[in-house]
Amino acid sequence: MSATQKILIIGTSHTGAFYTARQRIKTGFPTLEVSYFGLPGRIYSSASYKDGIFRAPEDASHQLGWMTHNEIDFAPFTRILHVGERYTLNHAMRLMVFHDILEEPERTKRAFLSQAALNDLLRGLVRQRAEGLVARFGPEPLHCFLPAPYPLARSVAPGPGHEFALASLRKRPHGADWMRRYEAMIGEEMALVGLDVMLQPQETRAGQFMTEDRYARPKTETETEPGSESVDHRHMNADYGWQVFCAFAQSRLGLTPEDTHALAE
């Protein structure tokens, strides 16, 4: 039997998808002891990291119901999965949406941007974030960064939670190609600063830059639904957490889930 590995999943509210899948993760990966540490985005951003201790601001502790402490020591963990970095996705998409690219054939009377400028501006956005992450956590090879999931495919429909940039970009012929380049830049820039990044697994995606609707959290599609919560097209459910954790375990730990039949729901 393999020795137990201690894994930490830490990040913004997107850690919720993993936390809700914790029982499946525990059953599917009995050799892993997984801890979860999640904070709302703004609190996560303002948390400190010093001498291996990640600490939320005192006045912001216990913001998530399942959190029992406001700091965590990274030392005991063999791998740490950081969840929720967006790499300024919205700004990247808006840059592509609000400009016609000179070298692309489509013309919509928007301002022009050259391919070179678009490329360098996108890379500049990503580089800033990568440099910010390495400045915060150091070039630690045990850390793996998973971007926040792309919004759900349903979010492009008009209504609450409508993702304007996403909806506009998918109508533009160059959208998917430039999103591929943007993702490639994330990998390249993270590698340059010595950090590991795992992009959202393709099997969870709808197209190039949306998430399949089956990963929606229950009762978050409309406000009129009985018992509905707020409309949410950005945070995913336990299936997503499970699926992505499997991808992480396979690619970073060389593990596959045990007895997948028993795990099927």
Partner: peptide, 16 residues
């Protein structure tokens, strides 16, 4: 009237 909105690095913006 021409600079894209967003937290783009000034050095990159200025280069263009």
């Amino acid at each position: 009237v021409e600079t894209p909105n967003g937290p783009f690095p000034r050095e990159v913006l200025n280069r263009y």
